[in-house]
């Protein structure tokens, strides 16, 4: 079970920051501002951020940005990054051609 989170708790207003247009998810080109907005829209878990913004959903599957996003959620919510669950790791951990994958069971 996940940790108790009352999604109505006050995390303050979304204040624009000078580096909001900096890219965080390199694959899907999702900016810091977009992720911060998602957090203020109520997306408080890594998975919700991923599904809501596509950050971490690109070709590399969040291998670079996950750690950064975790830190961002923690900062906006005022909690420790330790308390934030990671995204589910998914098969395949590297991109694989459909043809190549299919040969596994012929």
């Amino acid at each position: 079970m996940a940790e108790y989170l009352d999604r109505s708790s006050d995390i303050g207003k979304l204040v624009a920051m000078p580096d909001d247009d900096m890219i965080i998810c390199r694959c899907e080109e999702i900016t810091k501002g977009e992720i911060r907005k998602a957090i203020h829209d109520g997306m408080w878990t890594m998975t919700e951020i991923k599904r809501y913004t596509r950050a971490g959903m690109g070709l590399c599957q969040g291998q670079t940005c996950s750690r950064i996003i975790k830190g961002m959620i923690a900062k906006e919510l005022g909690v420790l990054p330790l308390s934030i669950d990671d995204n589910t790791a998914r098969v395949p951990v590297r991109p694989v051609e459909v043809r190549v994958y299919g040969k596994g069971i012929n």
Binding site: R26, C27, E28, E29, G58, L59, C60, Q63, T64, R94, P95
Partner: peptide
Amino acid sequence: YTSKLHKPRGVFCAIGRCTDCV
């Protein structure tokens, strides 16, 4: 050049992880 913002990309991790160098 990236899909959305058309920005240049090159080698970044060089170990097959980041997929930037595709």
